[in-house]
Amino acid sequence: MKSLNLSPLKKLEIITEGGHKEFVTDLLDRAGVTGYTIVGNLSGKGSHGVYSGHVMFNEDDVLIMVIVAVPEELVAPILAGFAPFFEKHTGVVFVSDIQVSRLVKFKD
């Protein structure tokens, strides 16, 4: 079996209210990421209260998570970019180390 060619990347998981989906994806696009995944209808608890995760009136009242894999040099700018947003809004960003096999999909 040929050994896998894995390359290290960083994974960002951005959890925030559903109403800000456009903003988050727009900012990531401008940062130059090649793609992202959005997970919806999440529930959870934070400093602002409990989210029930049940789509009510529209999507604004639920939590979403945007998962994106980026090369290391993009992590600092993206975190800097989101800093003003998270000062005023509920949500978090998790950064973790991952490895991917098809690096070409994640880098230009």
């Binding site: 401008r30 130059g32 800097a80």
Partner: peptide, 11 residues
Amino acid sequence: SLGDRLKVRSM
């Protein structure tokens, strides 16, 4: 820098 540009957009 990219970070500053994104920051402005966020603000």
